[in-house]
Design a protein around this nucleic acid. Structure first.
Lengths: 238, 238
DNA sequence: TCAAAAGTGTTGGGGGTACACCCATGC
DNA sequence: GCATGGGTGTACCCCCAACACTTTTGA
């Protein structure tokens, strides 16, 4: 081996395949959940796993992830997906090395095209009591949880998970689930109002929403304001 | 294409090679710097790039990154390297697709084995005025800078970049460089003392070193304390 | 003697946290 | 009528930001 760390000082080894997994996190009004699929193949046939696919060696990661997302949720959003990491544990795939490039997104459960996918074994499982997943997907989920925790603390990501109209109670439940602790109701409200990211929709819930209590004030998320804050270097700290 | 997002629903495409790059960030007492190498090959012969190498399809990322680090710095530290992301832009490599799994580390410049590597064109370049790099390494550097900014704000990472003994002036210069703004000296000191992560070494620098004119107090980093804080869920916010 | 960095306290304001009670609705 | 969640205000404390001058040393 040469002493050099120039690039490339060794020949590339074109014997790796790329797979792509999505950690899709939703919220049902009570608790956080993650979307899992059922493996149809050996050696993990029937086991749960993250929605995943192999990609062709000419495919871009993010475009492939967005395409996957669109198949599941019916629309495309260039902002919603974030890459986590490459997970490179050496699987015992008969063909060779597979590197998994994992992504995650915070989604609205109501957009999931359940009719289309449930028959293949796709389902939401509770974030706090995740079943065992195949491959190294447990590691990926753990990594995604850590990122969620960090993101929740400094970006108003909660809004991606809630419907267009939501109550403060739902929002608080969501924060408590994501951060694993509880907050004082009054302080929570004061803090959120101070961000001016909430729009008072001036109407009351009829109780039909997930986790909504009838008669409580409905709010929306001020997306324009948030975009401006991002430009000027916002500071949202929880 | 099948409707399924089970895994794997398509066959893996074993035609990808993995390369690994390191973003190594150091500090010379005045400014942050990044270590770059000189490309010895077409199509970027002579251009600057991140220290990089192809890895064999059976190699683990982190172990390979640590080995690279050890060659450059002379020791191994399982904690020092963090993976950033996989960068998958499709290069025009004649052989096929190369995916770059980028890592970063905050290092002490004094540990760099300069005699051994400078003859190959390795050098430190200023963090704030990075020259153009080959491949998509500019993207990788930008991603690393963003991560550094976030890390600096919530972990006492400054200490990885400084020698065992340092002055508060150096520490402040470092924070200012990393966050791109300046701080009030008195407030900065109060804040750092409050963390109790500083050890007063009870001796003075001789002042002749870094343009210091007055012998200033030397401090060390209380690593044990920091480890304890990590366990109990510390809160270091800048 | 001049330039450059070290070192040092106080004050005011804002934000966080702790804390308790009444109201509306559904059952 | 009871249980569940919705909604509201105050007081204290801590932390942050703003702010200026003296000391030491090397050149």
């Amino acid at each position: 081996m040469t002493d050099s760390l120039q690039y490339p000082q060794e020949e590339p080894d074109f014997n790796v395949a790329i797979s792509l997994s999505l950690v899709l996190i939703g919220f049902d009004g009570q608790q956080l959940q993650i979307l899992v699929a059922k493996s149809a193949r050996k050696p993990f046939e029937g086991a749960l796993m993250l929605p995943s696919r192999y990609i062709h060696h000419t495919a871009e990661f993010m475009l492939s992830a967005r395409k996957m997302f669109e198949q599941l949720f019916g629309y495309d959003d260039p902002e919603i997906i974030e890459q986590l990491q490459a997970f490179g544990k050496v699987y015992r795939h008969p063909g060779g090395r597979v590197v998994n490039v994992a992504h995650y997104a915070l989604v609205r459960k109501e957009d999931f095209q359940a009719e289309r996918w449930e028959k293949y074994g796709m389902q939401w499982v509770p974030y706090l009591q995740m079943p065992d997943l195949a491959y190294d997907h447990n590691d990926i989920v753990q990594y995604a949880k850590e990122r969620l925790k960090r993101r929740v603390k400094r970006r108003p990501v909660g809004f991606n998970l809630l419907p267009e109209e939501f109550t403060l109670g739902q929002l608080q439940t969501l924060y408590e689930a994501a951060l694993g602790k509880s907050f004082d109701k009054r302080n929570f409200r004061k803090k959120l109002f101070k961000t001016t990211l909430l729009i008072d929709l001036e109407k009351k819930s009829d109780g039909s929403g997930r986790g909504q209590h009838k008669g409580s004030q409905l709010f929306g998320f001020n997306r324009e304001k948030y975009e401006k804050m991002k430009l000027t270097g916002y500071d949202f700290l929880f």
